[in-house]
Amino acid sequence: MSTEAHGHSHAKHYVKIWAILLVLFLISITGPMIGIRVITLITAFGIAVVKALMVASEFMHLKFEKKFVTYMLLTMLFLMFLFFFAVAPDVMKTSGQNWVKIPMQEQPAATKGH
């Protein structure tokens, strides 16, 4: 039912993808060991994005699936970015226009028989 060719060559293709993902994984481990923050960010997160895209397009066949599936998944992802950039100014920053966060002392722990 899927469009790509049948037969065993296919299994090799997946093992090849797996090997690439493994190499990328090793890089994303060693990168942060160097300790330079910007390299850590690129290797850890950059490679994570690349790996995710590979798993999605290769293992999940999104490359061969109907286009609307990818658009749907990307829309859900876009909604999360939308949520992040609209909420960050309130939650992430410690002060804004006419407001500032202040440290609060410990409240009495919720004492109840739970």
Partner: peptide, 21 residues
Amino acid sequence: IGSEIVIFGGILASYIMFRLQ
């Protein structure tokens, strides 16, 4: 998977906001 993306998205977005702060 679409509905799971927004669930994990909710947790991770909240985490990243606090983590960057």
